[in-house]
């Protein structure tokens, strides 16, 4: 056995450790799998703390909103007539409760509208430990039926997709991540193109020809071609249009969902194509979609396989990762 001089031992150890990790990386790339045991352990160990933290923050916020904010209001009201005090206090209480309930009511309305689409509400309990990736963690996982590649939305629009599901936690890749993408189209003109993340708050619509007319403010919705999200869900609004490097325009899209302030989301509990009902103006009631077929898991099973592959082949560029 060759003796290693003590001054070189750390260098040898460094080389071994780096080489092992390079091999680990290579192995993951070959197998296209990232769900290794260490990841499961770490997420399982961290998620209870994140869950507790999320609970703590919501309690602190609740206490602030319901007690301290009202104390301020009460102090101000003391300078006014006592009769007005009581009324204002009552209004403040109702407003506080209403604003807190708004998000949850939105989710509930959405679920009721889409009662035939299997979905589950989830709370955001954590984010990526890496500043360069837009990833969040949910407080629900395999036990709730969540699987890899399921779509995640809010009533405002598309959020992202599940990239890993653990027993009680799921990892979601947000639309703003560079590796993220969704099949989309412009609602008004029906021009189709994938929309992807750029690592910044705005998204990029990649393959719209310089010859097509696109206006700022037009709405971008899902095309359904990626087989993850149903058709016609809001993705965002066109925020910037320039003539890009030929042959495609440079288009930036502002996401409809508030991706930097997510607290509750909805996970679509199916990886099969579904059709969602559109909401009517100013109400949560639903109307049947033009292609009114049942929006349930069985839909795909009933669809002829040949038809599915034809649709995919018809728009290969609209099928992001």
């Amino acid at each position: 056995m060759v003796a290693i001089p003590s001054r070189h031992r750390s260098l040898v150890l460094l080389t071994i450790v780096v080489v092992v990790q390079v091999l680990l990386l290579a192995l993951q790339i070959t197998r296209e799998s990232q769900g290794s045991l260490i990841r499961v352990w770490t997420v399982s160990a961290v998620s209870p703390f994140e869950r507790a933290g999320a609970w703590g923050v919501s309690k602190v916020r609740g206490t602030w909103r319901h007690y301290f904010a009202l104390s301020d209001t009460a102090r101000e009201n003391e300078r006014l007539k006592q009769e007005n005090d009581a009324l204002k206090l009552q209004i403040s209480q109702l407003r506080a409760k209403a604003s807190e309930a708004d998000r949850l009511a939105g989710l509930l309305n959405f679920r009721e509208t889409q009662e035939r689409v299997p979905m589950v509400g989830a709370r955001v309990i954590g984010s990526s430990a890496d500043a360069n990736s837009a990833v969040i963690y949910l407080d629900r996982g395999q036990h709730d039926g969540i699987k890899k590649n399921m779509g995640v939305i809010t009533p405002d629009g598309v959020v992202g997709k599940v990239i890993e599901s653990f027993s009680d936690t799921a990892q979601v890749l947000l639309l703003t991540d560079r590796d993220s993408g969704v099949g989309a189209m412009i609602e008004e003109t029906r021009i189709q193109s994938p929309v992807g993340g750029t690592g910044e708050p705005l998204l990029s619509m990649k393959y719209v020809s310089n010859d097509d007319e696109v206006k700022i403010g037009e709405h971008v919705v899902t095309s359904g071609m990626d087989r993850i999200f149903p058709r016609d869900l809001p993705v965002g609004t066109i925020a910037e249009v320039k003539v890009g490097a030929p042959p495609f325009k440079f288009i930036r899209v502002r996401p409809s969902a508030q991706l930097e302030k997510l607290e509750e989301v909805i996970v679509l509990l199916t990886t099969d194509p579904v059709v969602m009902k559109k909401k009517t103006e100013g109400s949560a009631s639903a109307v049947p979609p033009p292609q009114a077929k049942p929006a349930v898991k069985d839909t795909a099973a009933k669809t002829a396989p040949g038809k599915r592959s034809q649709e995919q082949a018809a728009k290969p560029a609209d099928n992001p990762r």
């Binding site: 750390s10 460094l14 450790v17 780096v18 990790q21 390079v22 680990l24 990386l25 993951q28 790339i29 990232q34 290794s36 260490i38 990841r39 352990w41 770490t42 997420v43 961290v46 954590g126 990526s128 430990a129 890496d130 990736s133 990833v135 990239i163 890993e164 990892q171 890749l173 991540d177 590796d179």
Partner: peptide, 23 residues
């Protein structure tokens, strides 16, 4: 590696970088 586990990055990306920085 723990940071990799909590990110979407493949295991080893932050591991290699932080190994070198630690050294």
């Amino acid at each position: 590696l723990l940071q990799d586990s909590l990110s979407k990055t493949p295991l080893g990306l932050f591991g290699i970088a932080k190994t070198l920085i630690g050294y």
